Amino acid sequence: MSGDRVAGVAGADTPARLFQLLSLLQTPREWPGAELAERLGVSRRTVRRDIDRLRDLGYPVRASRGALGGYRLVAGKAMPPLVLDDEEAVAIAVGLRAGAGHAVEGVEEASVRALAKLEQVLPARLRHRVSALQIATTALTSGDGASIAPETLTVMASAAAGHERLRFAYRAGDGTQSRRLTEPYRLVSTGRRWYLVAFDIDREDWRTFRVDRVSDPFATGARFLPRELPQGDAAEYIRQSMRRGRHQSYALDVTFAAPAEFVTARLPSTLGTVEPLDANHCRLRGTVSDSIEWLAVRLAVADCDFTVSAPRELVDCVRELGARLTRASAPPARGNGPDPSPAGA
């Protein structure tokens, strides 16, 4: 990441000059060759050679001819590395940290991986700015799950990606405290909470851990060869663990008046499998252990019409919720509602 404004760099070595050239090109505009040469303090011929080097590294640089022609970085087939200045790096880190504390659906795991990579290379002075900004701001809205420190997620994500043993303190559902030494496999978001799937060294078995009950996680530095997960898929393992851990589960059967791709993108995968019925309808079936009230609300915010066939408890809950929302949206009877005039009028 380039921390300062790009200035003349006559005499700079080629790698440093390439990074500075890349930083300029990543600004969304057309750069005339003469202006790039002036900024970098080199000849236009050197600029052309450096452009060719960037192309060899996979950066899709397009050149246009004419009096107004120049160079522009365009979208390619693969995502090349980005060069960020200080302000851009801080802005991205703050945004990722703000969203990482809740299990936001859709890109939650990718966001945590990106945050872990970014914070690994942030200079100390930028880390301080990111932390100060987050402390000084408060979100008006939040997710419907427990809040989690972004540092907890990034430490876990880095340990899992690097196949490094992870030690942490854990509070069980009954309040029992323990210390765990694990081989982290994968972080999974259910839409409300984060879970860690890991092999527990002391118990010699696979375990799931609610991340909001984890404290003081740190990577030990000891590497491990990843084991094969029994279910083969971390999300499926979490789903089965939740079924075993709850006293009551429900067979879910819901039909949506929307394409399968639309519904899949808006509901957590832990609810079950979405199967297309036709181009504009699909069906969700699965076994769930979440609260009936949460299921009703979660389905309602999927942003499409749906019909619940099972379980019966969910049918009743959706009907009651719909009636309550209808009453809430109806205008109050004249003379019975609160005085609509502003206070002090």
Rank of each mutant, 00 (worst) to 15 (best):
W31C: 01
W31S: 00
W31N: 01
P32W: 14
P32Q: 14
P32I: 10
G33A: 11
A34R: 15
A34H: 15
A34P: 06
E35N: 06
E35W: 13
E35G: 05
L36W: 12
L36D: 11
L36H: 13
L36Y: 13
L36E: 14
A37T: 09
A37N: 11
A37C: 09
E38F: 11
E38Y: 10
R39E: 12
R39M: 08
L40V: 10
L40G: 07
G41N: 14
G41S: 13
V42K: 05
V42W: 02
R44W: 01
R44G: 07
R45C: 03
R45D: 10
R45G: 08
T46S: 05
T46L: 01
T46M: 01
T46H: 01
V47Y: 04
R48A: 00
R48I: 00
R49G: 01
I51R: 08
I51L: 08
D52H: 01
R53D: 11
L54W: 06
L54E: 10
L54T: 07
R55A: 00
R55E: 03
D56K: 10
D56V: 09
L57V: 04
G58C: 05
G58E: 11
Y59D: 14
P60A: 00
V61P: 14
V61Y: 13
A63D: 13
A63C: 09
R65Y: 11
G66D: 05
L68C: 07
G69H: 01
G69N: 04
G69I: 02
G70M: 10
G70L: 09
Y71A: 02
Y71L: 03
R72G: 01
R72A: 05
R72L: 04
L73V: 11
V74G: 06
V74A: 12
V74R: 04
A75W: 03
G76V: 03
